[in-house]
Design a binder for these strands. Sequence first.
DNA 1: CGATTTTTTGAATCATATCAACGTACGTGG
DNA 2: CCACGTACGTTGATATGATTCAAAAAATCG
Lengths: 213, 213
Amino acid sequence: MLIKYIIYQIKSIILYLFIYLFMQVLLNHINKYITTPVSENEFKLISSYFIYKKIRKKQYLLVEGTVCKYFAFIKKGAMRKYYIDENGKENIVNLYLENWWVVDRQSYSTKTPSSYFIDAWEDCELLMITIENKQKLENDSPSFKELIYKMRENNDLCNLKRITSLTNCCAETRYNDLISNYPEFLQRFPQNLIASYLGITKETLSRIRKLNH
Amino acid sequence: MLIKYIIYQIKSIILYLFIYLFMQVLLNHINKYITTPVSENEFKLISSYFIYKKIRKKQYLLVEGTVCKYFAFIKKGAMRKYYIDENGKENIVNLYLENWWVVDRQSYSTKTPSSYFIDAWEDCELLMITIENKQKLENDSPSFKELIYKMRENNDLCNLKRITSLTNCCAETRYNDLISNYPEFLQRFPQNLIASYLGITKETLSRIRKLNH
DNA sequence: CGATTTTTTGAATCATATCAACGTACGTGG
DNA sequence: CCACGTACGTTGATATGATTCAAAAAATCG
């Protein structure tokens, strides 16, 4: 019994250390975006709200028809957001890698069922916070609030760029721009997903790549 | 002298009444978006920060290379946001009508020079607030803060829809969707602007309209 | 290794752009 | 108020870019 107890204690200590280590990644990320570094105390507060979760390839973070409950930070892995159209085809809306935030803002802010699926393309390690705790933390931690604000500006900017790109550029330009902005995408995602994200067919993408040498 | 003074006073009263009337439009707009109606006092506070301005067709609200200083609410008229590409062609980014908010968020939030022009397509009446006063007002007026938040969610949603539409729909579908969402666009903007907004040529738009009978 | 997924290739087809010309509407100055 | 010029819209012929479909080749996974 004593041994069992000791093992249990050791396990929780290890778990605690792990989470602490994992949160360091988030801390670095936050400090990169905000003006004054996060204090020790504030960081403890932030840490207390996050949960660490591993999800395996193909597992869902969000399923169409359910309300988005979590804001997730990708510590490790790759994810995708997509919807299934009337022909049953998957349409990639977003691709995500390490240090990206994943959420369906529309669903969580209006509390309505999502029209998207979000799943893990690779095995993932996530740092997650519930939507309610995110609100709380935004009120209690200026740094976190600033981060959320900046991430949102960032996201907004990306969306606008994407609209401009889709409106005025041909498939080849869009592909080249994507790869120069996110070269890792090619190694981490198959070409058919990238093609879908760009709004072109996999055949077209294959031909573009052939021409590019 | 006395007469001059009286005239001056009458003028300012009239001006005040005008502004008060104009602000009613904004009040209605705000109440449509927020949960609890704006109180008398809060509305007075909001009113005090706005300036009323008429601008004539073709006049600029924002010029490329300058920093966006105002948040503008269109009380009356039509505006457009566009950029000029390397070939000197105008590319329409957004079209705006009554009760829309006009701003270059990227420019004002990063305080960097804008890459867009915003001008009046029709003679306009605007209710404008400086970016600094907008921040102040967001802190002092919960209703205004809620409005800004809601408008932003809204904008976000529109951008996402536009990305999906550009990625997966053909020109005809995009045009039909636009017209069913904003039927006024056709009466207020020439087809070449609408075509540019949709990312198609004016010839293609003309042919689509012909087929639609 | 076989099974499955992903990528490539070719041919036919479709959607949209381009270019050039003409038609129409509108507003301004004489 | 008319005539003119400018801006806007339509049409046709042709070119280009991207899709579709089918099949084979290559890569990946258990």
